[in-house]
Design a protein around this nucleic acid. Structure first.
Lengths: 186, 186
DNA sequence: CATCATCGTCAACCATGTTGACCATTCTAG
DNA sequence: CTAGAATGGTCAACATGGTTGACGATGATG
């Protein structure tokens, strides 16, 4: 009755059949489309694969305490620094939540707060050298991971995936408020 | 220095240029690959787009209180029902957390607990009629969403995306423990 | 100058995870 | 058969990352 996800096995719906190369796919069976529920799972699994590898590698390079949510927040701060309420707007969360996240980043040594001489209400949040280091390493690691996918699938297939996703993704989905989105109060 | 995500705009990296059709992409500029950080963002945005539309539609069809995490949990219970500790293993979370999630699903009317006659320790968690209804509607909605993507991009492009993701995704990433993964204690 | 908007923060709360501890039950070796 | 180990469920305490509501301090504007 219900289109049940193949859990309880490890069950990548079509993934275990071709772990090695990347050439002879599509050509065995009939071209029946996959079940609709597999697409979101595959997208999430792809995202998660990249993020997990990123953080494994970051941990190896001296950033063991960063969580995915922190990376998003660091991106939201930006090289120029931001006020907490700007961060909140960019992440799509309340300014109180942004304040707590900044607290956490400060505690981890990735950001610091400074007074804004132009406006005594604001407190500018800036990346520390460690924050910049983390961001630079992240960019390099993402570059490497994409290159690995391109080596496996072919550059034009990765580009096609990016172009296609860019075409169908709703603009609102391109927000940084990944954390708390899944289970949260939406 | 740092490969900064284009936030603070709305900034789908290459998405706003082609919101309508899906034909004339690839052919304008040089084929320089996108920056590596865009791929995970696009994958997540794709996932999120599908899930957001699913829940918008579910809300319209009489399931306004379901969260993405609940869908995962219902899938983990399965049509046959499961013990809480099985659910925990499938979701990759502690049995205590699974118990709380089940509490929530029971409170929402999607699941119920029953004694297991064969083992007095176990308590079988089963879907209610409402739970089955939600799962069936989810499957139908996912089917429709995939068809929309196929209409926009072409069936072979969607299939290619699925095949390619299936090929590069790490098996461990295909888990149902999406909730809490991003910010959590990993 | 009075009013209103904005910035940051405090407090209380919710949802989801985590460990550790515990009891009841079942399985398994002797 | 029984003693000990595994297993299943739950309670309690805590962390994290959200939420709303309230509020003081500051800045902008009539």
């Amino acid at each position: 009755m219900v289109n049940q996800v193949s859990l309880s096995g490890k069950g990548v719906p079509g993934g275990e059949a071709r772990a090695g190369g990347g050439q002879e796919r599509r050509g065995s069976g009939p071209p029946r489309p996959r079940a609709g529920y597999e697409l979101p799972l595959l997208l999430f699994a792809g995202f998660r694969t990249l993020i997990d590898e990123l953080h494994t590698e970051l941990a190896r390079q001296g950033h063991p305490d960063v969580r995915p949510a922190h990376g998003f927040a660091l991106q939201a701060i930006g090289p120029e620094g931001s006020a907490a309420s700007d961060i909140a707007r960019r992440l799509g969360i309340s300014k109180q939540a942004a304040g707590k996240t900044v607290d956490r980043l400060v505690a981890l040594g990735y950001a610091e707060r400074a007074e804004d001489p132009a406006d005594a209400r604001r407190k500018l949040v800036r990346l520390t050298a460690r924050g910049f280091d983390m961001l630079a390493r992240s960019a390099a690691i993402f570059e490497r991971l994409r290159a690995e996918w391109a080596a496996e699938l072919g550059e034009e297939r990765v580009s096609a995936m990016e172009d296609d996703l860019g075409a169908v993704v709703s603009p609102g989905a391109f927000r940084l408020d990944a954390a708390g989105w899944i289970g949260g109060a939406m």
